[in-house]
Simulated scan of single mutants.
Amino acid sequence: MLDARVKVTGRLQMVGDLAGADVGPGLLHARLLTSTEPHALIRVDTAQARQTPGVAAVFSGVELEAALGRPARFGPILRDQPPLAVDRVRYAGEPIAVALAADPDAADAALTRVRTTYRPLPVVTEARTAMAATADAVLHPRDAAASEAFPDLRLRRRPGSNLVNHFVIRSGDADAAMARAEHVFVDRFTTPAMHHAALETHVAVAVPSAERMVVWATSQTPYKLRVQLAEMLGVALDRVQVRVLHLGGAFGSKCYAKIEPLAACLARITDRPVRVCLDRAQAFTTVTRHATESLLVTGVRGDGRITARRVTAWFDAGAYADISPRVIKNGAYGYGGPYDVADMSVDVYAVYTNRPPAGAFRGYASPQA
Rank of each mutant, 00 (worst) to 15 (best):
M1I: 08
R11L: 14
V15P: 00
A21E: 15
D22R: 10
P25I: 10
L28V: 11
H29K: 07
L32G: 05
L33S: 07
E37Y: 08
P38K: 02
H39R: 13
A47V: 13
G54L: 09
V55F: 12
S60E: 06
E63L: 05
P83I: 12
L84F: 10
I96D: 01
L111Q: 09
L121G: 05
L121I: 06
E126N: 14
T129W: 03
M131D: 06
A137S: 08
V138H: 01
H140C: 01
E148P: 00
A149R: 14
L153G: 00
L153C: 00
R154W: 09
R157Q: 14
P159N: 12
V168T: 13
I169T: 06
E182W: 04
F189L: 14
H195P: 04
H196Y: 04
A198V: 10
V207D: 03
A210W: 05
A210S: 13
R212G: 05
V215D: 01
Y223T: 11
E231V: 01
E231T: 10
M232C: 02
D238E: 15
D238C: 07
R243T: 10
V244D: 02
H246F: 15
G248D: 11
C255I: 07
K258L: 11
E260T: 12
A263D: 10
A263P: 09
C277A: 15
R280Q: 14
T288Q: 13
L295M: 11
G302N: 13
G304H: 08
G304L: 07
R309H: 09
W314R: 05
D322N: 11
G337D: 13
A342M: 04
D343T: 01
V348R: 00
V351I: 15
R362I: 11
Q368N: 13
A369D: 05
